[in-house]
Amino acid sequence: MAHLILLAILRRSQISSIHKNGVSLASLHSTPAIQRDGLGDFALTDRVAIVTEGNRGLGLEAALAFSMAGSRAVYCLDLPEKPGEDWNAARQSIAKLGGAGRLEYVTTDVRDQKRLLKTVEEIATKEGRMDVCVTAAGISGAARPCLEYTEEDLEEVYAVNLKGVFFAAQAAAKQMDRFQIPGSIILLASIAGSVALKHTPVLPYNTSKAAVIQMARVMACELAQKNIRVNSLSPGFIETPMTTAIISARPEFQAIWSEQSFMNRLGKPRELRGIMTWLASDASSFCTGSNIVVDGGYTAW
């Protein structure tokens, strides 16, 4: 329920939203001091975060949430050489907020372990710390019957969804340990890692997300003594660029995915801001090794 408390606090801070290209941007009508004091343990004052696939979708939502909670800097790591329109619009919105953290963009490939380790080390050295990591990079892969998947199909998905997630978490944890700073690592999993998705044949995606959930548990056990928390977050079907592209190609999935939810709809990316901020902050200091499900009731049937 902690994320509901945070949302209530944010409402009292009078957040008004506008939408541009599917990304919800926000303006806070209060002073930076009031923002930080009002958030209490949810505040991320002066903290530094990295977010993979921070150019759009849930990665960008995490970056926005952390900036509004007072982060010093959120580094959005993604594959394109230059950030897209959504990211630029988000950065401009954040820049107008007094006391909000910086949004920075860094081009990198989560599949390249050596490059990622170096990139994250350079960020931590520049900022003098590393506090939060969100591994949002992921691909769905081709949708086809399990009997038809090739080795190449599996390798493509696992390289991003499994290896890329671990490489990013590992890189961040190394810097948290280096600076002896308590850290929080949030691995983006999915309900697809816990249940089979009705009429949605994406075996490599499902198995990769199941692995991410287990990865969070194992890393949490190993890193607890270093005061680094690791949790996985399993959203249901959210209106991200990935799901929107699938629905554009297969419109029937809109109804298939919606009808499984008690709310009979897909989630909005901004509806995950609260839980991501909670997991990143001291408000969740006793939470590690957990898989948090936010799915509109999809898996409760």
Rank of each mutant, 00 (worst) to 15 (best):
A159S: 12
R102L: 15
V106T: 03
A143K: 06
G101K: 07
K126I: 03
K126Y: 05
A171H: 14
P145T: 10
R91K: 07
R91F: 00
L117H: 15
I139G: 01
A171E: 13
F179E: 08
E121R: 11
D131P: 00
V134C: 04
C146V: 13
I139F: 00
K114M: 08
C133Y: 09
Q170E: 13
G98M: 10
P182G: 14
I139R: 00
E104S: 12
P182E: 11
E121Y: 04
A100E: 02
C133K: 04
Y149R: 04
Y149Q: 11
L162D: 02
V160W: 03
G164T: 00
A89I: 10
I181T: 14
L97M: 14
R129F: 07
E152F: 02
A124I: 10
V157K: 09
G84D: 05
Q170V: 05
A159K: 09
T119A: 15
R102V: 15
R178Q: 07
A100Q: 02
G99W: 04
D86E: 15
Q175F: 02
D131W: 03
A142C: 12
E122A: 15
V132W: 02
E156K: 12
D177K: 10
T107C: 14
L97N: 14
P182M: 09
V110I: 04
L147R: 04
E85R: 05
R91I: 00
Q180K: 13
E122D: 15
A90C: 14
R129I: 06
V165G: 01
T107G: 14
Y149L: 11
L154N: 09
V160Y: 00
V106A: 08
V106K: 05
D131V: 06
D177G: 08
R129T: 09
I139T: 07
Y105I: 02
A95S: 15
G84E: 05
R178M: 06
F167D: 01
R129Y: 08
D109G: 03
I181A: 11
V106I: 06
Q170G: 07
E122G: 11
A90E: 06
Q180A: 15
T125R: 13
D131I: 01
K126F: 01
L97P: 11
C146H: 05
K126Q: 04
Q180M: 11
D153N: 14
E151R: 12
R102P: 09
Q175L: 01
K96R: 15
E151T: 14
R102W: 14
L103V: 06
E104Q: 12
E127V: 06
G164Q: 00
A168P: 13
G128P: 01
K126V: 00
E104N: 08
T107L: 08
V120A: 09
V157W: 07
W87T: 03
F167W: 05
A90D: 05
E155A: 15
L103M: 12
V157L: 09
T135I: 01
T119R: 13
D153P: 14
E121L: 06
E155F: 13
N161K: 07
E127F: 07
A136F: 05
